[in-house]
Amino acid sequence: MDAGTLLVQWLISGLSLGGLYALMALGLSLVYSILRLVNFAYGELILVAGYTLFLLNPTPIPFLIVVGIAIALAAITSILTERIAFRPVRSADPNTGLITSFALSALLQNAALLFISPRPQGVPMPALFTDNVRIGAVFFAQRDLISLVVSLVLLALLVAFLTRTRLGIGLRAAADDFTMACLLGVNASRIIAAAFAISGLLAGVVAIFWVGRVGTVTADVGTTPVLVAFVAIVIGGMGSLTGAAIGGFLLGFLNVGLQFVLPSDLLAFRQAFLFGIVILVLLFRPAGLIASGRTVDRV
């Protein structure tokens, strides 16, 4: 393949994967920047959406509506986890919230194992997702192009929401300095609920494409995405929303790029190379690419 073709392939694949990573990272980062809570149960929202796709697949409901229901259920689950699990420990030590999120994650995963199945379940995707399309000399799965468009549109909507609406400005203010925002009259509970709702919505959208890539859903389907999202917000800069998005895209491009540049016998160690680069980034920028300037605990 010539260089131009490779470049197009890298750009599109990188944007597609990076877009998903960025959405996930933003969902995780939104909650983190407001509550200083790394919500490891975030991955289980992908589980909820994934199993919804699986369970509703045999029904005559059209695919796009199933997708809508799956995304809505992820958002609702996110709001409920905040209400039921995180709100009671909100004023406790941040580590309590972290442990709560692990507990919640284990609970939901085991519920899926117990009540649905311990085996991977196939989620057939419609032709729209699985067909290939030719761009120049390269073939792409339409799914990748759709995910690219959807994530870019969603990112643009999110930016518009965060900069133009009252709730969005409140969210960004709260993400910057939660206490100060409350002292100016921002309703803490409402802003936290909104953060969890958006976080769940993003997880739901990511779930569709994540499950679409793999084609199956398992109880641990959320583990890798949440880990990737976490790494993305760390290299982007904990607490910075822009940083989270940049971190997501960076990971996506690196991941796809390594696939091209590594010799085939080293491809199995792609993750090692990827995280090696992450470590290098952190060596030079310990607070992440965009430091939020508030890495110390809040008083």
């Binding site: 400005i169 409140g170 960004r172 203010a173 910057d176 300095d177 925002a181 100016l184 822009t242 939020s292």
Partner: peptide, 20 residues
């Protein structure tokens, strides 16, 4: 204790929005 990553205008807007 400003909202550091927000613009000057947004800092003040956020306060007005928070006040309803």
């Amino acid at each position: 204790r400003l909202f550091k990553q927000l613009t000057t205008l947004e800092n003040v807007e956020a306060a007005a929005v928070a006040a309803g």
